[in-house]
């Protein structure tokens, strides 16, 4: 066990496991966000968002989530640096014309950077006012006082530039996932000639559901919920 993470496959294992963990997070995140589309003035969404602010989640699970992001990002950087070194300093003058290779698979780091940049904006938009400065306004639902998260989101998506930014972020995430999803299973060794196409199809479907889901919420909020 000691040296597993010192090996190339071990490092990839960390990418795979942290990636799959983040995939689970995305599923939860999207599920909650879909409540934004329930036409109840944001009541259900606020309750769900408040649930996420419970101490157990805030102090118990959030650090794990952050750790997941950090491991994924740091190892991406390490692997990319090692891979550049392995590629060597001399580059091909005639480029690379290998066909049938998914574009995303060759640009995961760049796509990851796009998603990370978006993540920073996203944290400033919501996480900071909701969990750090508590600058977001309050609302009382069923006798419980909580942040009016819905109002915060609704106000944010009233601005078209932010909607565009979020759609771009969602698209970056989608492309990242089209390769990342099946690749995670390949790295875990849970693939063969049959399962490879299954994971690929599942991964592409998942990526677009997640991406279009987030994008649609932003657009619909902008168009119909103001």
């Amino acid at each position: 066990m000691s040296t597993i993470f010192g090996s190339s496959i071990g490092r990839k294992l960390l990418m795979s496991l942290s990636g799959l963990f983040l995939v689970v997070f995305l599923i939860i995140h999207l599920s909650i966000n879909l409540l934004l589309l329930v036409p109840d003035g944001g009541q259900m969404f606020n309750v769900a968002a408040n649930f996420m602010a419970l101490p157990l989640i805030k102090y118990g699970l959030q650090p794990v989530l952050f750790a997941g992001f950090i491991v994924h990002i740091i190892y991406a950087a390490i692997l990319t640096a090692q891979n550049n070194k392995a590629r060597g300093s001399a580059k091909y003058a005639s480029g690379n014309n290998t066909k049938d290779v998914m574009w995303a698979s060759k640009n995961m780091f760049v796509l990851g950077l796009t998603v990370s940049a978006f993540l920073v904006v996203h944290l400033i938009d919501y996480w900071v006012p909701l969990q750090i400065t508590h600058a977001a306004e309050s609302i009382t639902i069923d006798g419980v006082e909580m942040h009016n998260t819905y109002a915060l989101v609704n106000a944010a998506f009233a601005e078209s530039w932010r909607v565009i930014l979020y759609v771009i972020g969602a698209l970056g995430l989608t492309i990242h996932l089209t390769h990342g999803f099946w690749s995670a299973f390949q790295t875990l060794g849970l693939s063969n000639n049959i399962w490879r196409s299954r994971w690929t199809v599942a991964g592409i479907a998942f990526a677009w559901i997640v991406g279009l889901g987030f994008a649609a919420i932003a657009i619909l909020q902008f168009a119909f919920y103001q």
Partner: peptide, 18 residues
């Protein structure tokens, strides 16, 4: 393989094509 400085596989599948 690691010791000899080969890179980490990122499952692009280019190898299989070529």
């Amino acid at each position: 393989m690691d010791e000899l400085g080969f890179g980490n596989c990122t499952n692009t599948g280019a190898c299989e094509v070529e």
